[in-house]
Design a protein around this nucleic acid. Structure first.
Lengths: 331, 331
DNA sequence: GCGGGACTGGACAACGTTGTCAGAACTGGC
DNA sequence: GCCAGTTCTGACAACGTTGTCCAGTCCCGC
């Protein structure tokens, strides 16, 4: 900027004015400055600007895995809202590791992002309290924060799972297996709770062996599914706790050994091509882009100065019957 | 930092030394400083640090759509490499709009990212020349840059398409339709060129009506496919130019009106569940994570000071026969 | 007791920008 | 010709950090 000023024969501040389109520069001076800018290939250094102004016009997004087909539309939705507010998006994957989440979040805070959207991997966010006090707006999505109070946007996992399991029961199933994500993850726990509620409401007592929360690793899911299917009293239907599990189950049920076994399936989360499988997969759909959009909008409300107490937004899910969830029980 | 220094009763520089783990601070002083840091919830302001040091330890990624299942693993791979080098990732979607690409890239440059990974939407990147001269390392992925010279990592679209189309020809097809992405997009043009090469090598002359590059919009793809299938001399097989088109074609061929028509299909790009469809979809697979990883590594090579002339890395594709590409022609 | 080296700590400038403020150069009215 | 008002311009400080450089203190060996 100094160089531009020198070349245009004006003061520093005048260049600053031109760069920022401020009023009070004669058109002749403005022209000279613009020429110098072009000639020198000058670009304002936003680091210095940030230092001076205090706001970075950027927000951070911490999620589990950017490449997960559930999270990537969420990420994109946050990006769109950020863009509409003139902010850039910095994002990082926590890989479901609490330490890595904290490391990322603190790195983002050190860069002085204006706000944070977090899909928590950790269940204790007290480390964030000083940052929030220091003015970093924070919104949690998909899962609530641990041990602090903050805005949060959730899907209604409990109601969704209850509806999905009730759907299977309505189609005659009594022995329904639940294969879900790690216990401790809020959505996983809520969906299991929904399963239990639906079973209880129908007067059914799930056997311990029908309930298998755990990792979404394909081998684990396949093993638990096989165990339930090969038992003396096999399950006739599965409710799966998320899209990763659903896909593994679909693959497992389509394997030659199981072909035509007619096991019913309802999965939490929709996924692409679910309608083209045989049978098409019935799902409890949530809308990740909607979650992201709502979270980002809540964030920018805070950045615009909203001071009301933290909100909890619960977004509805939608049962999408496609075939696999309407199969009758086979013995 | 000033406050921390005051509270600990030391000078500014001493606090800086503690924060950065530099030597030359007695353990007693260090303890006092650390206490003050905790008490005040101090976090170093990286904007100021960047201003002083010149490097931001962050890289920018500009791609077409963060939510596209092809690009999201690429993005994740770039993130992993960045993380290994202690850098954060700032990313933005260009939505295939050249202006938006430029806007994003320049915003990233203004933030003084150390480097850029770009999946171009534009075919003219001369606007980047001053930035590159100013030291922003830049690597293009998936598509080459326009009118400037820079590192680039590509999949071998031409060879992949030629192999895929030759595979259909080897299975007896003569009338093969090509439905691809917008002309002008490098990968789209290369794949069309591969199609033409394979046809020519087999002594086949594709009719104009068999070749339909264009938008990946489902309605457009469906209309062109219908046209080719309902012609007097219908095509017996499709080669599709990318995963979006493939999915639309699969959906179209599975529609009741076409059920059992036995049209063969080979698609460029692999996609999840391709193996579970009926018939399973034969694809020419590329590895987006591999592209991202290679691009990021090339970028960090430059940041580490490599000065050799720009490289062009071409990554191989892999034909994955699954069923849909091995169907015989039906008349 | 003294010189010298090792260690510790702090004053100061600089990074590139913008807000504040004041000065210079005009204009128009009397 | 002079003053008030308006428009344009630039000097300067400040944002929070780090590199440079110097000063003080301590300990050692002679």
């Amino acid at each position: 900027m100094k160089d531009v000023a020198a070349r245009a024969g004006v003061g520093l501040k005048t260049v600053s004015r031109v760069v920022n389109g401020e009023a009070g520069v004669s058109s002749d001076t403005e022209r000279r400055v613009k020429e110098a800018i072009t000639a020198l290939g000058f670009r304002r250094n936003d680091s210095a600007r940030v230092l001076r102004k205090g706001s970075t016009s950027s927000i951070g997004l911490v999620l589990e895995d950017l490449a997960d087909p559930f999270y990537s539309p969420l990420s994109r939705a946050v990006e769109e809202v950020a863009r509409a507010h003139g902010a850039l998006l910095i994002n990082g994957s926590s890989a479901e590791d609490p330490e890595r989440e904290q490391e990322l979040v603190l790195a983002l805070c050190a860069r002085r992002v204006d706000g944070l959207v977090i899909i928590p991997a950790s269940d204790d966010h007290r480390y964030l309290a000083p940052e929030i006090d220091a003015g970093v707006a924070t919104v949690f999505v998909d899962r609530p924060p641990g041990r602090i109070d903050a805005d949060v946007v959730l899907s209604d996992s409990f109601a969704g799972a209850r509806t999905g399991v009730a759907h299977l029961i309505a189609h005659g199933h009594r022995r329904i297996g639940f294969i879900g994500d790690q216990p401790g993850i809020h959505t996983a726990d809520e969906r299991l709770r929904g399963y239990r509620a639906a079973m209880a409401e129908a007067g059914l007592e799930p056997a311990d062996s029908w309930v298998a929360p755990g990792s979404t690793d394909a081998a684990r899911v396949a093993a638990d599914a096989a165990r339930m299917l090969d038992a003396a009293e096999p399950v006739t239907a599965f409710f799966s706790g998320n899209n990763r599990v659903t896909v593994t189950l679909v693959r497992e049920l389509a394997a030659p050994a199981r072909a035509g076994s007619g096991v019913a399936l309802v999965g939490f989360d929709d996924f692409e091509l679910a309608d083209l499988l045989a049978p098409p997969v019935t799902v409890v759909a949530q809308d990740p882009a909607d979650l992201g959009r709502n979270a980002a909008e809540l964030l920018f409300r805070r950045l615009d100065g909203a001071e009301d107490p933290p909100r909890r937004l619960t977004r509805p899910t939608r049962l999408v019957p496609r075939g696999s969830g309407e199969l009758p029980p086979r013995l």
